[in-house]
Design a protein around this nucleic acid. Sequence first.
RNA 1: GGAGAGAUGUCAGAGUGGUCGAAUGAGCCAGCUUGGAAAGCUGGUGUACUGGCAACGGUACCGAGGGUUCGAAUCCCUCUUUCUCCGCCA
Length: 423
Amino acid sequence: MLQVSYIRENKEEVLERLSVKNFSQPQLVDEIIYLDNQRKSTQSQADDLLAKGNATAKQIGELMRNGKKEEAETIKVETAKSKEDIKALQEQLATIEHELNQKLVQLPNLPHNSVPKGKTPEENEVVLTYGKLPQLPEKPLPHWELAAKYNIIDFELGVKITGAGFPVYKGKGAKMQRALINFFLAEAEKAGYDEMMVPLLVNEASGFATGQLPDKEGQMYHVGIDNLYLIPTAEVPVTNLYRDVILKEEELPIKNCGYTPCFRREAGSYGAHVRGLNRLHQFDKVEIVQVVHPDRSYMVLEQMSLHVQNLLQKLGLQYRVLRLCGGDMGFTSALTYDMEVYSAAQERWLEVSSVSNFETFQSNRLKLRFKGKEGKTQLPHTLNGSALALPRILASILENYQTAEGIKVPECLVPFTGFDFID
RNA sequence: GGAGAGAUGUCAGAGUGGUCGAAUGAGCCAGCUUGGAAAGCUGGUGUACUGGCAACGGUACCGAGGGUUCGAAUCCCUCUUUCUCCGCCA
């Protein structure tokens, strides 16, 4: 969430930055400033009356103690009117604050200056491309055919017990999942991330704090009876560890990682591109999260991007890094890099990771602050990235390591799988 | 699921209607002391909104939200949560 004070003081810049994200409701900015003015004046009126009321109450107490009961009674009567006024003002204030907040949460984060304009994924900027395509058999098979051929993933079985998008991993397929999770966690630990194992269901406050609510309401599974949401990413519970927290400056940076299943309703996305593992309702992911000093966040973003690239290099996958354009970026992000792996069998790039800097957007909602050297509290920057999401990585491995005899297991995974070939 | 007891500042812990943003102790910070340190002494030490160049003020916050009252940490209601006992259970 943007800070109202920042919006007030930098209105033109805010409007200009929002236009890079193709934000459709720029009038909200003026409405927010207007409501904030209302808020201020209403609050100061209410505060004045409250101050008077407090003074009167003290006076009455004084009189009562001195036994001047009648005088006290007289003043009591006079307070009745001001009580009503206070109540009215406070109700008004609550309404204004509610409206203000409702508008505020609709504003996306401002994109960083380096974010290219653009509306569609085609306008993302390719930052770099690494590696080359492997030698594949004559007619490479897509991963869903390989999965069936070697009996490692059963999509129909998942449909039976739950529905589409909930695959069952079998035998070496299941072991591959475990191996990938352990490999990713081991690499994160080497890079200095502390592992957290967090709840998979979160409450409403957590959903709001990281920005999934209200923006992605409807994309999360909701357990109505207890009003809890299944997490769409570990970002939500991990980042919310720091909700309502004031850190000491020397506690920064905070580096956490965590493995969780992720649940996404993916309402409205169907078709050829979502076959097999390409888009699932439940998938596994290792997430990395950092809370850092504002001066360092863009440096850290590069480090996190390199961490992800390092994983892809170890897995021997060809990839490219994109800087997302304004139109393709997430609601909460200031700058996002997507990593994509090329699938020769599908003849397309598959997004396997997304690394973002949220600047103060999340910390403001989280009420996460740190106390600087001079005792001033300020908002730190938060960042996160997938390192990595499993399904498309598994898909890429199956497709890019296929041979006529079977599928080779990338060398870095063998210590975790205990086998080096799937046939 | 049932019964009971709690939830107070960084922590421990007092406070059952006014003088309470809140005793006391610990911690932390600064100063004094010291060759240096410990101990000791002195002072300071919450968050948010808001007025002011500032000094310094105003308001709110004692788990959350409502209510009673001129006045609520303190009384009432609802919710959340922790602990103990019983039940159930991986």
